[in-house]
Write a protein that binds this DNA or RNA. Structure first.
Lengths: 163, 163
DNA sequence: CTTGGAATGTCAACGCTGCTGACATAAAGT
DNA sequence: ACTTTATGTCAGCAGCGTTGACATTCCAAG
């Protein structure tokens, strides 16, 4: 309910409750747009967002282990396992027993898996590209900056490490 | 796979595939942070994100009708109804039959509902405020600009209308 | 070498929240 | 008055989170 603030002699109009609430709602609505296009593609395959995320990060780090994926995705291994099982059964993901440690499973996309990843990525990238283009380079820098500041500490480190 | 582009004689380095992929992953990780704090509070109440969203927008527009909420939330009335039922039973939301049109239900938060809304809002706003503060005013403008461009057309209009 | 514990991954069952379908009630048009 | 349309409710299914129980493998202590 505070409409204006001054702190250290500096006017911080962009931190009013109204501005923050707008930011929250923008985040909510934008995320809907962000997932809308991939969702339509996934529906045709009978998959959901969890499959998208798995396919995305397996493509990103081919040969990654289940345990690594868990950290990145932030879900339980049981939850991820269900998704991986269908992807493996459907021939989109290849699961290979580790050579050094045979408890581990190393995951890779098959050609079929890469095709889906490409379709999803193209759709999502297209929207992002249009948004970036219309907003302009400076806005994109600010966008990325705020998003990074909004992440949990451990995720930000992870995000920056894999740059 | 295109690392650089030139278009209309203008260098658009911020639209490389790598940059766009970074944007996508930033969005994914940031949204996790965005929902993390409210999620912890909701858990104590035995509620989920759907309850948060309902409570948020009922607080935003007291007396709103179920049908209006559906548009904003982008879910089916059956899905929303389940959430509203629990909120009404638990005494967080008041549902009143419309006077002009008695098919309609007008929704309002009770004191108890406002208390939960405040707790959720405080938590989510705190993170947003910190992120905004660290990123600075210019970044916030860019952040908001890109998010708006990422929304579906109808949601963007809705978002701008309720400013 | 054996054994006990820790790590990795799988199977089962439960809950939240999307969805479609069927339906009751109220309003509106013919 | 009757049909059509709009609003909201109830029931049941699917996706994807969760915890619990368990098999396999590795490794370290004895």
């Amino acid at each position: 309910m505070i409409e204006k603030r001054a702190q250290g002699g500096e006017s911080l109009l962009f931190l009013t409750d109204a501005q923050l609430r707008r930011g929250i709602e923008a985040m909510f609505f934008a995320y809907r747009g962000f997932t809308a296009d991939p969702d339509r593609i996934l529906e045709q395959y009978g998959y959901g967002r969890a499959h998208h995320r798995a396919v995305h990060f397996i493509n990103r780090w081919p040969g990654t282990r289940v345990n690594d994926l868990l950290t990145v995705l932030g879900v339980t291994k049981q939850s991820l396992n269900r998704v991986l099982r269908t992807l493996i059964e459907d021939g989109l993901v290849d699961s290979r027993v580790g050579t050094r440690d045979r408890r581990e499973r190393h995951l890779t996309l098959t050609d079929k898996g890469r095709a889906l990843e490409r379709a999803l990525s193209d759709a999502q990238t297209a929207r992002m590209r249009d948004a970036f283009r219309r907003a302009g380079p400076d806005a994109v820098v600010g966008f990325r900056r705020v998003l990074e500041e909004m992440m949990d500490e451990d995720l930000r480190r992870l995000f920056e490490d894999v740059a």
